[in-house]
């Protein structure tokens, strides 16, 4: 499991050339799938989005890609999500029954599948939180 707060700043390295392409600045979460669908990367020349299938691995010290061109402009679902209020961190966390659980401070996701495994607020953590939505007002999860 990787925390968003831990992956931010991690270098993105092209395995074939051993050159650093850029560094991670954030994640794009699809609330419908409950999964990270892309990483946001700064410093790359062709765009700022590393789509999940274009990644070869999330390691403890670097995110590996096969080619520097893996970081490109956002496309498909990732572009759609980036067009909205996609950030989870800082938003209030609401249950689908209308209870406020606090402000989201961090999330954790599975390095293999990208599945969001936990959501953290200042005081609490919600493992196995099932995302329902993420909008302008709140992140909504199923009542734990």
């Amino acid at each position: 499991m990787t925390r968003l707060s831990e992956i931010v700043g991690r270098p993105v390295v092209a395995a074939g050339t051993a050159v650093t392409v850029g560094s991670v600045t954030g994640v794009v979460v699809d609330p419908r799938q409950g999964a990270v669908v892309a990483l946001l990367v700064k410093g790359a020349s062709n765009g700022n989005t590393l789509h999940w299938p274009d990644m070869s691995g999330v390691g403890p010290d670097a995110v590996m890609v096969t080619s520097p061109y893996a970081v490109r402009e956002a496309a498909g679902r990732a572009a759609e999500i980036l067009g909205g209020k996609h950030d989870l961190v800082g938003k209030r966390l609401l249950t689908d029954t209308g209870d406020d659980l606090g402000a989201v401070t961090d999330i954790a996701f599975d390095e293999q599948a990208g599945t969001v495994a936990a959501i953290y607020t200042g005081d609490d953590s919600f493992p196995d939180a099932r995302l329902v939505g993420c909008g302008s007002y709140a992140v909504v999860i199923r009542q734990p």
């Binding site: 209020k85 939505g133 007002y137």
Partner: peptide, 10 residues
């Protein structure tokens, strides 16, 4: 009380 969609929009 705010009225919020399951998608998280008020």
């Amino acid at each position: 009380r705010p009225v919020v969609t399951l998608g998280g929009d008020d």
